[in-house]
Write a protein that binds this DNA or RNA. Structure first.
Lengths: 353, 353
DNA sequence: TTGAAAGCGCTAACAC
DNA sequence: GTGTTAGCGCTTTCAA
């Protein structure tokens, strides 16, 4: 690591020799025959304290020299970088895609830049990324946290806006935006029983330590309890076909005897088994129901369309952005956990019983 | 704009009063009873020019004070920010998602940060974003350009690595990474004719000025020419149902008489009409074939699975990252257009005739 | 209407 | 081994 950095420095200097030094405010001042102060004023739009002539001269020089202000120097002086950081588990997860898109739009509209990084769900990496963002003086951070850096985040939250998305832990001074995973999941499972499915097999990834997964599972278990049904929870690992085979075998066993529904804890899990699920040969929705948490973009393309729990992903991103811009505008925003409700969307994949 | 900025500054100062000033290298030096130089050395791992005792003392003080180096100050001095910028049309487009993911991973592994912004395909906005990235002294830029800033990019490419992705324009000193849109599209259309479809209706968005779209269209037209078939090109606009209705009416008219295939210029276009396409009631693939450029993630989930042109999106992102890290390492990388070939993937949606 | 000069936090000659 | 000091490019008093 250190080695790389060093090499980097040296190489950089070597490059500098060939590449001409960037134009600075000094160069502009010199060429325009004014002081840097005046140029600085020009750059910040304080045209009223400047003669028409001076202004035009500076404008001309800047254009001619192709001068570009150095935001680093400005930020160092002003203590503002106008950038915020976002850390997600994986940029290509549908949740993250939707969130980042809305977050980026909201921030962009307010003039902020966005730095994005992926933690891959690893707490150490997450910690490094946060530190690195802090070192770069981002003005706020939004993250889908592993939950293992909560103490550190609590410290951080006293210095800058910190917004937890998706995985909503309670951290003093921080904001959390999540959905009502447990309620929505209970509702989904309940409706499946209500539709006449005798068995609802729940497929989930390992939930330990991940609140969203735990809550969705609990919601399912709640519904089983209330409906007096035996829960069937199958744990799968994405990328591990064997785990899915085992789960499907269980589904098959249930469906052979009675009407069965499969309910997956998120869209990626369903995506990974949808094909083999259909290959079991049961008629959907009459013999086999299919439902999932999340609303995959292909929910409407398959036949019959999927029954699913729609998470207001975009709204979460927008809200996160709004909280941050408000705070950076100096407004007071009370911290706490914000719940943006999800809703069950009934599709043909779970028919009337 | 100026107003906002000004207000921001003032508010910031107000905030500063309540929030304690950040610890600096000075504070650390003072508390440790050494000079800033020594602390700086410590921070950069030059432990050999430092006594064991000093090192431990500094480490202790840093931990105690919760000191975090200021990357801005470092960057200002060193002229390196270790961040690169990426500008895409829309972060949620499948191409961009795949590209950004691979790009981010490659850069992250080399210790670089990533700033992401969306141009929405607008040339002016794109230009602003580039300038803003330059102001922030990103060390390289990758972008999916509109093609209207090529002169500016040519200038920029002399100062830093510039990589065009997807839309591969030829710009001196810049790199471009694209796929063989025309060849792959010709191949796709050709195969459709070969499979016995009498008509291949091509659905595309307005191609003017966008090389990828033009090339795909040309490939289709090439195939028609060689196969001596009459081309049927229908222009659609995403988000405009009427344009899709017109296109589908045309498809219907063809399919009523003879075997017809629909071939869409990208996955998003197909996504927007897939459902209504199926609703026409033709049997797929016998009466109606369906094919698309791009490989949507749901290609395998629908029944029958889609025939499509698979673009090596991840590879493009990785390659872009590699070019940039190599250049920043000081290596020479010849500029030019890099073509990463796409391939036709046959699915059940276009059966044997 | 303008400018001189003191920093912002850090690095790296160049001393000692 | 360690410290002094001159910047990096910019903003902002304070003075003229």
């Amino acid at each position: 690591m250190r080695t790389r950095r060093w090499r980097g420095h040296r190489l950089f200097r070597e490059r500098r020799q060939s590449v001409p030094k960037r134009t600075t405010i000094q160069d502009v001042a010199r060429a325009a025959g004014v002081s840097v102060t005046t140029v600085s004023r020009y750059l910040n739009g304080r045209y009223d304290s400047m003669s028409e002539k001076t202004r035009e001269k500076i404008a001309a020089v800047i254009a001619e020299l192709g001068y570009r202000p150095n935001a680093l120097a400005k930020g160092l002086k002003a203590q503002r970088t106008e950038t915020v950081g976002a850390i997600v588990v994986n940029m290509s997860y549908p949740f993250c895609v939707g969130f980042l898109r809305a977050f980026s739009r909201t921030l962009g509209a307010a003039g902020y830049h966005l730095m994005v990084a992926e933690s891959e769900g690893d707490a150490k990496r997450e910690r490094q990324l946060i530190e690195s963002f802090v070192a770069n003086r981002v003005e706020a951070i939004a993250l889908q946290t592993s939950g293992d850096n909560n103490d550190y985040l609590a410290d951080l939250a006293r210095e800058m806006p910190v917004v937890l998305v998706d995985r909503a832990f309670a951290i003093p001074n921080a904001y959390a935006i999540g959905t009502n995973n447990r309620d929505a999941s209970r509702e989904m499972a309940w409706q499946l029983f209500d539709l006449g499915y005798d068995w609802v097999v729940y497929l989930t990834e390992d939930a330990r330590g991940i609140p969203t997964r735990m809550h969705r599972l609990e919601g399912y278990l709640d519904a089983c309890r209330v409906a007096l049904r035996e829960p069937v929870v199958m744990r799968v690992r994405r990328g591990d076909p064997a785990s899915f085979r085992a789960a499907l075998a269980r589904v098959d066993a249930c469906a052979r005897k009675e009407r069965t529904a499969v309910y997956t804890a998120n869209g990626l899990v369903l995506m990974e088994c949808y094909r083999s699920l259909r290959a079991l040969g049961y008629q959907v929705p009459d013999e086999l129901g299919i439902a999932t948490f999340d609303e995959p973009d292909w929910a409407d393309l398959v036949d019959p369309p999927l029954t699913c729990v729609r998470q207001p992903v975009e709204q979460m991103g927008e809200t996160a952005g709004q909280i941050i811009t408000a705070r950076l505008r100096g407004e007071h925003v009370p911290s706490g956990i914000l719940v943006v409700p999800s809703s069950v969307v009934m599709g043909g994949s779970t028919g009337r019983g």
